[in-house]
Amino acid sequence: MTGRSGRTVRDLRRANRTAVLQRLYFDGPLSRFELGPATGLSSGSISNVVAELVADGLVEEAGSVDSDGGRPRILLRAAPGSGHMIGVDVGETRVRIELFDLTLTELARVEKPLEQRRYEVDGIVGHIRDGVAEVLAAASVGPEQLLGVGIGVPGIVEHTPGRGAVVHGQTIGWDAVPLEELLREGSLLPESVPYFIDNGAKTLGQAEMWFGGGRGAHNAVVVLFGSGVGACLVTPEVEHGRAVEWGHLTVRVRGRRCRCGALGCLEAYAGA
């Protein structure tokens, strides 16, 4: 059945499940009573959605709290073992691969050093593939249990319909590298497991907005100082934030030569 807005009953059910899971994920544990105001759903909808999520193994009880004169309220939380995620950071000196459960508890980690900051495409792809296999084996988690793999990389990422994520990284010598396509070739992960590939400063900005200093803020600038210098602008007008090539802003005319080839970049002075 389709309503006036064009949404079907299935769409509405999915949206309600998503709303409850998001609140439990970011703000839980919460009681059913607290989930109502937090999601805008009625008490009847909350009861139905929670029952479905518990039956599916996505939500579990997490103790209870005393209520004002009534029965203790049961607290609910996202079930840690109901899903797993892998995060990958392609940094200046190493590639770090970490495996998490649904509550972002780290289960396994490996680091692959980069020799003399060498960014050969085959080497990076190999490090990511090997690292994914190693953390899954270390935690005895099957590839089919993954919800996705998130990868932060230097450079600008273009999301194309045919080749997936394509990376343009002038400072590391990458010119339209089809990273997602290369990772899919010979991968142990099933096609159903998605890759989420984006600029490293942008992924850092999103993490700060979700779990760090940006929680509760509508607008923020998150700055990354390392061997390179990056920034992410987060604002409601730009979905998921925007990476800013701040490190390659010219701060001195005819200044020091930057690794990008230009003169006087901020990174040539502020980068480690």
Rank of each mutant, 00 (worst) to 15 (best):
Gly40Met: 07
Leu41Asp: 04
Ser42Arg: 14
Ser42Ala: 10
Ser42His: 14
Ser45Thr: 10
Ile46Thr: 07
Ile46Cys: 01
Ile46Glu: 04
Ser47Tyr: 09
Ser47Gln: 11
Asn48Val: 14
Val49Leu: 02
Val49Pro: 05
Val50Trp: 02
Glu52Asn: 09
Leu53Met: 08
Val54Lys: 11
Val54Gly: 00
Val54Trp: 03
Ala55Pro: 00
Ala55Asn: 14
Leu58Cys: 08
Glu61Thr: 15
Gly63Glu: 06
Ser64Val: 10
Val65Ser: 00
Val65Trp: 07
Val65Met: 04
Asp66Gln: 14
Asp68Pro: 03
Gly69Val: 10
Gly69Leu: 05
Gly70Trp: 09
Gly70Thr: 02
Arg71Gly: 02
Arg71His: 06
Pro72Gln: 08
Arg73Met: 05
Leu75Gln: 10
Leu76Met: 03
Ala78Pro: 09
Ala78Phe: 00
Ala78Met: 06
Gly81Met: 02
Gly83Arg: 15
His84Cys: 04
Ile86Leu: 08
Val88His: 09
Val90Tyr: 02
Val90Gln: 05
Glu92Phe: 12
Glu92Met: 03
Glu92Trp: 06
Thr93Tyr: 08
Arg94Tyr: 05
Val95Gln: 00
Arg96Asn: 08
Ile97Asn: 03
Leu99Cys: 05
Phe100Glu: 04
Leu102Ser: 12
Leu102Val: 08
Thr103Pro: 00
Thr103Gly: 08
